[in-house]
Design a protein around this nucleic acid. Structure first.
Lengths: 231, 231
DNA sequence: TAGTGGTCTAGACCACATC
DNA sequence: ATGTGGTCTAGACCACTAA
């Protein structure tokens, strides 16, 4: 079939021109987000997907290729293509990889400290594109790393600000009960899908309250990671 | 030509089986390292390369694809494929982007502090793959940022360790006289081409000597960027 | 043996840049 | 008009995995 066949296909709600394989990629992502294929599970074979979408195997392959290089999917020769599971693991730092000095990979535990609804401070309002005085939700969490045999040690203080209007029903109880990654909750309950994030890194001295929570002396050097996520 | 043609081709010093496109990729990298195509210049078209290597355009394309996703090459539709040059701009922090808090882009100046040849300390020897006691070159530089109208302020202390054997003629005088990016000097004089780098980031408190050089109080929080470059 | 992804080829047309 | 990379297809064979 000639390449021109692309224009004879129905284009499923594609706003503008985009390569077929990009459209396929979007459809795959949508299925992944929709939970059609669970993490760790196989997705249909390339030929199956090609048949489903009415494109050639090569086009499906290119879409899968990109998702594989993005570590969203994992290919295993002879077995199939699987939904990546390590991306789910480290909810935190999906974009910045966090490793202990010795290179080991301890188990991370989360502890919810706080979840309050309040008027957004000016700085936060600006970053989130809220009007000053509009509601925002502040979530504070502590991440504890437990090396083998050691007791958990606090390593990350997570300060999260969410735009109030889009997170109406979010309460401490809801958060407390949720076990999986936060962004999964956001997707499931609030239809909020994170697409992209910018991170800035600074070195700061620990403030008194931060020092106490992290069990370090006040003034100890800390990494401040400022992450702004877009939906 | 069927796929089996791959086995009829001469395999140029390939130690073991590897996909044709990977071999092509290696050849391209070798040409890049050898300086056959200079940064910013066009490389031959896909069809030309396909003819040169006796493979199909698609195979060359896949090799170039990977080099493009690695930011070694840049494709420009209708014009050709170019050797990436974005490395030239910001000598410093090719992999980590460094920006002032206010987002402006001040001019960076370099000041050479030190250039000594010495026995590599154990830690450095390990990282550089040297035998303990083998020679290493330590280069220390200060980067000063001059915002418009302000006097230059030291912002980065650059501590550089080089394997001695590969940098025989490197002296403080040679460094002092050199104006361009360091890696340019390395390429021109020592045939050393940086391909890849790993960076780790920590927050540390300023030691006494570092604090003095950077004009901050001792113990002030600093970002420690540990970069290991591969050739 | 059958099915999967992995590689390779060949040829078509499109979009862009240049002359 | 020509040449470049960009997309898409179709079909071949290979390597791995599992029943």
């Amino acid at each position: 079939m000639p390449a021109a066949a692309a224009s004879t296909l129905p284009e499923p709600a594609a706003p503008a021109f985009s390569p077929l394989y990009q459209q396929i990629k979007s459809l795959l992502v949508r299925s992944l987000q929709g939970g059609e294929w669970a993490p760790g599970q196989v997705i249909p074979s390339e030929v199956e997907l090609a048949a489903r979408f009415r494109v050639s195997q090569g086009t499906v392959r290119k879409a899968i290729d990109e998702l594989a290089t993005e570590n969203v999917l994992v290919r295993r020769q002879g077995k199939g293509t699987f939904v990546a599971t390590h991306a789910e693991q480290s909810t935190q730092f999906r974009f910045l990889r966090l490793t202990p000095d010795d290179g080991s990979a301890p188990a991370l535990r989360r502890r919810l400290l706080d979840c309050r609804r309040m008027r957004a401070p000016p700085e936060v309002a600006r970053r989130l594109g809220l009007k000053t005085g509009e509601a925002a939700v502040q979530v504070r969490r502590l991440l504890l790393a437990a090396a083998a045999g050691d007791e958990p040690r606090p390593v990350v203080l997570d300060d999260l600000w969410l735009p109030g209007p889009q997170f109406k029903g979010l309460t401490a109880e809801r958060l407390q009960a949720w076990q999986g990654p936060l962004y999964r909750l956001f997707e499931a309950e609030f239809a909020v899908h994170m697409i992209r994030a910018e991170e800035k890194i600074r070195a700061v001295a620990a403030a008194a309250d931060e020092a106490e929570l992290l069990a370090v002396p006040a003034g100890a050097p800390l990494l401040l990671v400022e992450r702004l996520s877009y939906t």
